[in-house]
């Protein structure tokens, strides 16, 4: 059957295009413009060429922040993804009150705004009034997230795991629920072990949703700002100063708009590259599967 070309649908996209232009493209253009100039406010700009980019690329401070950021993302992905799958595997599969209750409980942390999560953990971890900090202190652990880098990292990682593992659980659970019963019946006939069922039925069927989970958690953790800002403010010292915290310090704290613009563009390109790789793998594996 020959289709008649009809391009009218493009008009339907127009409002979104305008919205994106207003909220993303124009600001991005402005950032590009700022990245090649120096400004002291009042819309007065001085051309500096690619100087800021060179400065950022050779800045040890940014290299350190990037290292911390990569480590943080790696740690939380390697905890949240397996933990999320584990929890999803142990959730009730049959529809009913129990499974609904589990879903609501699991989804609860996702409903809490970032800054509230930060505040909850900031208080929770305090050794004078916080339940966690006080208990650990009384048990003899040397825990003080305002002074000890390890404690600060541990707090932020546990907080992120608490906040976001639910997302992985919900996605994995949706993936598991979509597996037809026939697969499990076939596995039973073959007397497949629990591990084999997981390895050859559940995991391949969850591949699509897990890729989405990894992509979402990667992007979000690589851009994390509010929670560590509220809990540690980037400290002690610079121990938890991740890229976005450093970027805000540079742009708003020091008002170095030029270097901050160059920094944010490089940051943006790195996220764009990794997200594109994930996206391509995702679309590609979907096509292979279906």
């Amino acid at each position: 059957m020959k289709k008649t070309p009809n391009q009218k649908a493009w008009f339907m996209v127009l409002p979104v295009l305008l919205l994106v232009a207003f909220s993303a493209i124009i600001p991005l253009m402005t950032v590009v413009n700022y990245s090649v100039q120096d400004t002291f406010g009042n819309n007065e700009f001085f051309w500096v060429g690619l100087e800021w980019f060179e400065e950022i690329l050779h800045s040890e401070r940014i290299h350190d922040a990037l290292g911390r950021q990569a480590l943080f993302t790696l740690i939380i992905l390697s905890i949240e993804i397996p933990l999320g799958i584990f929890v999803a595997l142990h959730m009730p599969k049959k529809n009913g009150l129990w499974s609904s209750l589990c879903l609501v409980l699991v989804a609860l942390p996702l409903l809490i705004p970032w800054n509230v999560v930060g505040t909850i953990w900031q208080i929770f971890g305090r050794i004078d009034i916080g339940l966690l900090g006080y208990t650990l202190d009384k048990m003899g652990f040397d825990y003080n997230y305002t002074q000890d880098s390890f404690a600060a990292w541990a707090t932020i990682i546990i907080m992120d795991v608490w906040h976001w593992t639910s997302l992985v659980v919900l996605l994995s659970y949706a993936g598991l629920k979509s597996i037809p019963d026939a697969y499990y019946q076939a596995a039973k006939i073959d007397q497949a072990s629990r591990w084999s069922i997981f390895r050859y039925i559940e995991l391949p069927k969850m591949k699509g949703v897990l890729l989405i989970a990894v992509l979402l958690r990667f992007m979000d953790s690589f851009m994390i700002y509010t929670e560590p800002f509220v809990v540690t403010g980037g400290g002690p010292g610079n121990a938890t100063t991740f890229l976005s915290i450093d970027l805000v310090k540079m742009a708003i704290g020091q008002f170095d708009l030029g270097p901050a613009a160059a920094f944010s563009l490089i940051y943006f390109l790195v996220i764009l590259l990794i997200s594109w790789v994930f996206y391509t793998i995702m679309v590609h594996s979907d096509k292979e599967a279906g």
Binding site: M29, N33, V36, Q37
Partner: peptide
């Protein structure tokens, strides 16, 4: 458009 801080090279880039 003054707040956007346009320059000729960046304009050429986007064009």
């Amino acid at each position: 458009l003054a707040w956007m801080g346009w320059t000729t090279p960046t304009a050429i880039f986007f064009i």
